Computed example of a mutant assay.
Amino acid sequence: MSQASVIVIGNEKGGAGKSTLAIHIAVALLHGGAKVAVLDLDLRQQTMGHFFANRRAWLAANGAQAPMPVEHDFAADGVALAKAPDEEALPRFHAALAELRGVADFVLIDTPGSDTAMSRAAHGVADLIVTPMNDSFVDFDMLGVVDPVTLELTRHSLYSETVWNSRKARATNERKQIDWVVLRNRLAPTEARNRKRLDERVAALSRKVGFRIGPGLRDRVIYRELFPFGLTIADLSPSIRPVAMSLQHVAARQELRALMTALGFSGLDEGERIAAE
């Protein structure tokens, strides 16, 4: 079996930007020349699946070319599978993963904003877990719990425990380490006292449970504007330009490049190979 790297985008809270990150990371890897396979475990929402369906349709309608990932028809009956018992769902997940690992350099898995057996299984086989969090104590609650009076960190959360257990099991059973990166996503454009407080708690928790901290993607119009076309900022070129270009798009591309660097990948421009450092 190919030793494809498994990247899991996960947390157990909706609205943090998991699917937005998943599609941008996948497309950036594709433009770097990597073979990428995608698996969407958010069986009801299927945001990543819809994105690549839009991409295929837009490219065909406009006679344009852009790299596509390998997709598994995992969620053709997604609603039914979401309701299936674990003993049925888990073998299907592992079979899909085995198939994709054999044809790709990277398998990127988007997970739902809830605790499911398949999501836990995905975390257990990950080489890299990417967890986005918004600039808010509401999102931090997913990772750690603070004292309501002093705002001091008191303990880690259930999701942190899930990742911790996955990392411990992987190290024990396979002697492999799972890299965990928490991305500060959708940061507000201005500094605030709340951000300083949050920064301190995130840093304290990172030392306690062992994740790295990286930059995410700001809440830019361009990311939402390109989604219906199945495109990202990495796709824009003289031949692919469904919206007017501006300096803000240049800043967004630099932001995506910084994100990929923080995750341990280099290269973003077409023709460059993105490879794990």
Rank of each mutant, 00 (worst) to 15 (best):
M1V: 12
S2I: 14
S5W: 05
I7V: 13
V8K: 09
K13T: 06
K13D: 04
K13Q: 11
A16H: 09
A16R: 07
K18V: 14
A26F: 02
A26Q: 08
V27C: 13
L30E: 11
G33H: 14
G33A: 13
K35T: 08
V36F: 03
A37S: 08
V38A: 11
R44S: 08
H50A: 10
H50T: 05
A53H: 07
R55H: 09
R56W: 05
A61S: 15
N62Q: 15
G63D: 14
G63E: 11
G63H: 13
A66G: 02
M68R: 01
D73A: 07
F74G: 04
F74L: 09
A75T: 02
A80K: 05
K83M: 01
P85C: 02
E87L: 03
E88D: 08
A89I: 00
A89G: 02
P91V: 07
H94A: 11
E99D: 10
R101W: 14
D105Y: 11
F106D: 03
I109G: 07
D110F: 03
G113Q: 05
S114G: 03
A117M: 04
M118H: 07
R120Y: 14
A121L: 12
T131Y: 00
N134G: 15
N134M: 14
S136Y: 05
F137H: 14
M142Q: 12
M142E: 14
G144E: 12
V146W: 10
V149F: 06
T150G: 10
E152A: 15
E152R: 15
R155K: 14
L158N: 13
T162W: 12
T162A: 14
V163N: 04
W164I: 02
N165Y: 07
A169V: 04
A169T: 04
T172Y: 01
N173I: 03
N173S: 02
K176R: 03
K176E: 01
Q177S: 02
L183R: 02
R184F: 07
N185F: 00
L187Y: 09
E200M: 08
A203K: 01
A203M: 02
A203H: 01
A204L: 06
K208F: 03
G210N: 00
F211P: 01
G214I: 08
I222H: 12
L226I: 14
F227E: 15
F227Q: 15
F227M: 13
P228Q: 10
L231Y: 13
T232D: 10
A234H: 10
V243K: 09
M245Q: 11
M245S: 14
Q254E: 13
Q254G: 14
E255W: 10
T261D: 10
A262V: 03
G264T: 10
S266R: 11
L268F: 13
L268D: 09
I274Y: 08
A276P: 11
A276G: 07
E277H: 11
